[in-house]
């Protein structure tokens, strides 16, 4: 192809539509359905087993009872209260974690001096399991929202910090040199080369950080809350209602998947240029 297009520049082939064409040819909802087969089969199987009396539904309630619990929570308005409480904590913690991770990651990635000064301390802090901070945070900030948001922010911070700092260090020296040839200023270099070059790693880190945010919100709500999906979990345990626990877990799964999907969808247009591996079949 090389030789042909180069020797006939007057009649070029239109741009290759890229590997995306093969993807677009397939129906996306079909992939979706394949992914649903296993969980649906398990749910139906268990429903049937409990209905026929083959299994005991007391500790593991059948799907119908979990959905009924969810419906009840929805009708009473409690579900919305719990979901909004948890979502608000994750959002605030994610925001502050991303902010700090981005600032410090960019700083240590870009400035060698800052890296030498800050990175050893941050790496040492990273070695501490974040949950270990909980007692201290409660002492310092009380049992209410502040300590919860800070715990989530700490969890979100590290993947973002690590990924961004590493991605900046990993930017292709040859592209930076092109920037030098065209006499880019420091800010232009950041805006035109470093930022786009690190974007794929950054987006991935945001998604990893969001996942950790969801993980830590549960821990935060375990340490004392009067509302939130984590409270629902503890409450279900205390009152011996596994259907309530499973309803909460289901809500976590749906919310986690939705927010991650949202993040992925928002970043996709920015990453269309990537020449990445696309598995076939």
């Amino acid at each position: 192809m090389t030789a042909v297009t180069v020797s006939e520049p007057a009649a070029p082939v239109p741009p290759v539509a890229s590997a995306g064409a093969a993807e677009r040819g397939r129906l996306p909802w079909k992939d979706w359905l394949i992914g649903l087969v296993l969980p649906l089969a398990l749910a139906l199987g268990w429903e049937l087993a409990v209905a026929r009396g083959w299994g005991n539904g007391r500790l593991l309630p059948p799907p119908s009872r979990i959905l009924a619990t969810l419906w009840g929570l929805w009708r009473s308005g409690d579900l919305i209260v719990h979901v909004l409480a948890t979502l608000g904590r994750v959002a605030a913690g994610f925001f502050f974690g991303v902010l700090a991770g981005t600032l410090l990651g960019a700083l240590t990635g870009y400035l060698t001096g800052a890296r030498r000064l800050l990175d050893p301390t941050l790496q040492a802090l990273r070695a501490i399991p974040s949950i270990a901070w909980v007692p201290l945070f409660i002492l310092w900030f009380g049992i209410f929202e502040t300590s919860k948001v800070i715990l989530i922010a700490v969890g979100v911070f590290f993947p973002i910090y690590l990924a961004l700092s590493g991605a900046i260090l990993g930017v292709d020296r040859k592209l930076v040199e092109v920037g030098r040839v065209f006499r880019l200023s420091g800010w232009e270099l950041v805006w035109r080369i470093l930022l786009p070059a690190t974007l794929p790693a950054y987006v991935l880190a945001l998604r990893a950080g969001l996942g950790l945010g969801w993980m830590f919100v549960v821990a935060a709500e375990f340490m004392g809350a009067s509302e939130g999906l984590g409270f629902l979990l503890v409450d279900g345990q205390m009152t011996g209602q596994p259907q309530s626990i499973l309803a909460s877990i289901l809500a976590f799964a749906v919310l986690g998947k939705l927010t991650d999907g949202l993040l992925a969808a928002l970043s996709r247009p920015l990453l269309r240029w990537q020449d990445s591996f696309k598995p076939e079949g």
Binding site: T2, T5, P9, P12, P15, V16, S18, W273
Partner: peptide
């Protein structure tokens, strides 16, 4: 001049080495 006007909107990964 370099014969790439029809590829103006393409991504670099879509070009051959010579292009």
């Amino acid at each position: 001049r370099v014969g790439l006007i029809d590829f103006a909107g393409a991504w670099p990964r879509e070009l051959s080495g010579g292009m």
